[in-house]
Design a protein around this nucleic acid. Structure first.
Lengths: 168, 168
DNA sequence: TCAACCAGTTGCAGTTCGCAACTGGTTTAA
DNA sequence: TTAAACCAGTTGCGAACTGCAACTGGTTGA
């Protein structure tokens, strides 16, 4: 928690936590890419975050309660980062931001297919996805439907289709 | 438009335009506070933006096409800033961010009443508000319903109620 | 035993931020 | 007519933040 709040406006307070160029990238990768470890977030990011920035952002997000950090039982050195309910509740924000970006900015097809599905699915799809995230990150019972797999499959399909088109 | 795009992901591209601590504050004040001139944005902001930062952000937002700038016919020196359709389309993003902030962050009652109404009203209210913004900023025909006035009245009512409670 | 892997830290140059003072011009009211 | 208030910014400066590359100390698996 920051003690130097500029105002009690919800938009402002949200911006004080997430208003920079990397925090939401990290959360996006945790949420849609299922990246849970430092090295995964560092090396598999499309945008190439620097390790000191990543360390700083993870520390802040943990401080603010958006992300939690735990030891990975399978490996003494591994830290396991999880979304909290606060982090999971960002799904609709991502959906709306993705929809806006997709409409107005020069997105690439492969990287925007997830945003497209999320937009078309609307609140019911978001709720299903959030249920699944609660299972993955909070240990809640795993729902039958896996929105994560649906999104992933759609992404793979686009990548495959584009690769095939490039060959032809 | 920036030529150094980190990736074609819609979330990333959105962040490259709006991912800082001030851009959305400026847009919020234009949208919900109907601030259209430099001095209004500078002095009436809850958060106290610096004039050089405001000038820089307005320049960027105009460059990116989120805001447009025109001469105010009533005053030779006045510049009139308007939301473009791209800016108006941010209404749902603000609604979701406001809802998130309201749920998880220490918002104040007066400054979050608008976010509450926007959340409760849902997509139909957002659409009505966007219609009104198109009238105000783009010269479209003015709709009958004024969501702006509804939000403003609710804000004033909270302020008045709190002032009365403080007196008692 | 040794290479690969783990989560970060450190140093440094360049950029951005935030504050305060200031600029050159316009409008308003006495 | 003139002075005060108002207009959109700009400039200078120290402090903070960013991004890059190299590095640390420890763990794991072959």
């Amino acid at each position: 928690m920051k003690d130097t709040r500029r105002s009690g406006c919800p938009i402002n307070l949200t911006l004080e936590i997430l208003g920079d160029r990397w925090s939401l990238i990290v959360l996006r990768d945790m949420m849609f890419g299922n990246r849970r470890h430092f090295r995964e977030l560092l090396t598999k990011s499309e945008e190439g975050i620097a390790s000191n920035i990543l360390a700083d952002r993870l520390r802040r997000l943990v401080d603010e309660g958006v992300v939690s950090k735990a030891d990975d039982p399978s490996h003494k050195q591994k830290a396991l980062y999880s979304l909290t309910e606060m982090g999971i509740a960002l799904v609709p924000v991502f959906a709306m931001m993705g929809a806006w970006g997709r409409r107005f900015l020069p997105v690439t097809e492969d990287l925007s297919i997830r945003a497209e599905l999320l937009e078309e699915g609307g609140p019911p799809l978001w709720a299903a996805f959030m249920d699944e995230l609660r299972a993955i990150h909070l240990g809640a019972p795993r729902p039958v439907r896996s929105v994560f797999n649906e999104l992933q499959a759609a992404y793979q399909a686009v990548v495959a289709r584009r690769a095939a088109a490039a060959d032809a």
